[in-house]
Nucleic acid binder design. Structure first.
Lengths: 220, 220
DNA sequence: GATATATCGGTATAATAATATCGATATATC
DNA sequence: GATATATCGATATTATTATACCGATATATC
């Protein structure tokens, strides 16, 4: 719960996950020079419910929208970015320099989301003391120590499923507060620590199920 | 809705997304030689509600569990894999051979999920007629044509946000039925076509919000 | 073999999230 | 300046999902 002005605004998990889509959409509008946008308009373009959009916007926007006009695009953009915390930078470490780890290290876009990966870790000695796109790679044994020393708050886990829990424990021991987990397993973390799963296997499950249904009805 | 035996079993979206975690968990049990597992046991390990687990299992498992014993691990595993469709192979194309696209092409694990990427596309001519880990890269202009000819059903979109909708349209034109979208935008697709978003920006939003709350209460 | 009990499966309730409804109002239009 | 209306914001309803409850039963234990 967050207090803005004097009305308490609750944001559901789902709503929070929709925010990045609003943000991208608003950026597109700004690029086109659009000054105002209404909830029904956004709803139409993003294929969402009008009321849902209005509630979502109410949660982030300090200033209300105006009848017949809607919301100011630049204002909404600023509110959204500050709401999502993309303005202040969070430093992170990445553990597991495999294919996926490498891709994330190479991705420049994270700076737009307030994320900065400042070190990587792996167990492969041939990688030690090398760099990938400017990020140094350290031995996994030093994970806890370096997290603590550098006051790292975010750990990105891109190791195979079998090692993910061990890595997670090391991150927690190092004082990390939030973990972005790409392994398809449940991580046990203490309360107060967030384990956010990037559940690619779940996406694949959705794809697979959809396809099966389509192909079944096709052959009926 | 799915009919097994003669009782209709509905699987909620959320339940479907939990399945991969059950699957990995069951694999771990099998590796340890565990023969039976009960819903309360799974719930405890995966930090889920016992009833939820039982309902989820009921949705996939043709055979019920037994009091005092639970479910047979191998049986459950088999049911889960066939439920998720990981046994039959779906062919896919990938569009956008950037950092992320490369990572996905390099990832061997997709075969475990019944996914096989058989071609990649990009607009960079220097990539044409090259291969990445055995997957040929074609010009993006040929996307629709090749999808249709190869009867591809799944498209993986790893292009920047600005191009995602155009790529999506080409895939749909080529007869693709399901799209796995990594761009942080909403894709407009016809009904019957699934646009499954891998919403990494949403994960970052969750991380960012959690951190902000933690750090705020710390300084109070 | 009798008894106690862990677990199951079904039904009921509660919590959460999405959508519908409606009066109020600022602004575009005449 | 008067009027019509698009949009807002608040409240009510519905849908979905999660959790609690409870009788039935197979099996472990004595």
């Amino acid at each position: 719960m967050q207090i803005q002005g004097n009305k308490p605004v609750v944001v559901s998990k789902q709503a929070l996950q929709r925010m990045p889509y609003y943000l991208e959409y608003l950026k597109k509008l700004r690029a086109r020079g659009v000054e105002f946008v209404s909830a029904p308009m956004i709803a139409q373009d993003l294929k969402l419910n009008e009321v849902q959009v209005r509630k979502d916007l109410a949660a982030v926007s300090s200033v209300g929208g105006r009848p017949k006009t809607g919301f100011s695009v630049p204002e909404l953009l600023q509110n959204m970015e500050s709401f999502l915390g993309y303005n202040d930078v969070n430093e992170a470490v990445l553990v597991g320099v495999g294919a996926l780890g490498r891709a994330l290290l190479s991705y420049k876009g994270f700076s737009n989301y307030g994320l900065k990966i400042i070190a990587a870790f792996d167990t492969d000695p041939s990688l030690y003391n090398t760099e990938l796109r400017g990020t140094a790679i350290f031995p996994a044994e030093r994970l806890t120590e370096l997290c603590a020393r550098l006051k790292i708050r975010i750990g990105i886990v891109t190791v195979p499923a079998g090692q993910a829990q061990a890595v997670c424990d090391m991150l927690v021991a190092g004082g990390v507060l939030a973990i972005w987990n790409f392994a398809p397993i449940h991580l046990n973390v203490p309360p107060n620590i967030l384990a956010q799963n990037e559940n690619m296997a779940a996406s694949l499950a959705m794809l697979s199920k959809h396809l099966r249904q389509k192909l079944e009805t096709e052959t009926d």
